[in-house]
Design a binder for these strands. Structure first.
Lengths: 205, 205
DNA sequence: CTATGTGAATGGATTCACAGCC
DNA sequence: GGCTGTGAATCCATTCACATAG
């Protein structure tokens, strides 16, 4: 059990969780690091190393108990605890993410959505009343929201991010192609769609 | 000028391109690796190493010519050449991506969209007539589409991916939370939205 | 005999540090 | 002097290999 856990390990932990969940539904009680690794096309040693960050979770000679491991990972990642998110920017992408089913399974709940446009404010978008971005701070505090999904136009990105920081947001999933400059206290992950597509296509042939 | 170019380098090249484009608009003629690196919060040596994969692009003592470097990167990444993509699965996310403006700037054009639902087939979605997924192969070949964006439900993901492979698709940007099993000829990049959000939130505090 | 857990070896990417050129 | 280009050094993640436990 070491100190610093690599981000890559956390990502794989989530993948393990998904497979274990599925395996359990199938009635699989026990699994070896090798079998789990094969499903993900990685090495058994990788699985074991990842899990070893969190203690001795398996039984030598016998492998891992699927349910126990799944529950341990759920605990590590706090998947059971619901976490509130807000979505800022109700364009096409923002509206699609509000409705995205996948978030629920990992314990996220969209607690508020924001936009700046009078045509959207106070209207329902996929079941959520769109709030004026002016009230960002108030609503984020009222609902104790810690995570924001940022889908505003590029021009508004930095400014909006600053408002999110001021409102006390701890993490931002940034869909804008802008490098946000905030204090290091705010954890930022970027999803740059056009870039992903371009990187991908560069490697063909 | 070495052999294998890391994927990370390609990603940064795209970022450099974006900044150079912007700098050029501002009238900046020349830039040092240090200044460019500062904009991206990386090291100058990283910029120089990345660029060195493609030859000697700068002038010792003087830095890089913004326009020349931008154009060289555009050439390396073939940003000028239009590449056709299709979007498969016209749910909320698929429909949002069809309308996503950011793709154009990097030379992508949505040439076809597909779904399986009779309610959508032959109807216009954000300006594109939605095709029956049955005609996937035919239309992909007619338009010489090489890249696909996959936004079908998880249950249909693997099956649809196989059809894309058979149709001759070279690369897939996979938005489903499914590990696709295809021959290694098809380059796959995964964007797992729920996972990104969960990884992000794990690291807060 | 089987499969985990882990220190050591390997591999890959980043950063250093300086020779080389302007 | 200033800044690039690059081999060497460093850092970090993955993989190996084996002692250890069941």
């Amino acid at each position: 059990m070491k100190k610093k856990i690599p981000e890559k390990t956390i990502q794989r932990l989530l993948l393990y969780y998904r497979y274990l969940y599925f395996l359990l539904q199938q009635g699989t009680k026990n699994i070896s690091s090798k079998s789990l690794a094969d499903l993900l096309e990685i090495r058994g040693s990788q699985v074991r190393k990842d899990l070893s960050y969190f203690g001795r979770l398996g039984t030598r000679g016998a492998g891992y108990d699927v349910m126990a491991l799944r529950d341990t990972i759920a605990e590590i990642l706090k998947i059971d605890k619901e976490k509130k998110v807000c979505v800022v920017g109700m364009g096409n992408l923002g509206a699609a993410l509000v409705a995205y089913k996948g978030f629920e399974a990992l314990g996220f709940k969209v607690a508020a959505v924001f936009d700046i446009s009078p045509q959207k404010i106070n209207h329902k978008i996929r079941g959520h009343t769109c709030h004026d971005i002016k009230n960002l701070s108030k609503i984020i505090n009222e609902h104790s929201i810690e995570v924001a999904i940022l889908t505003v136009p590029a021009e508004a990105a930095q400014e909006t991010a600053l408002r999110l920081e001021k409102a006390g947001i701890k993490a931002i999933l940034n869909f804008t192609p802008v490098k946000l400059s905030l204090s290091k206290k705010v954890k930022i992950n970027n999803i740059d769609l056009a870039m992903e597509l371009k990187t991908l296509s560069f490697f063909i042939r």
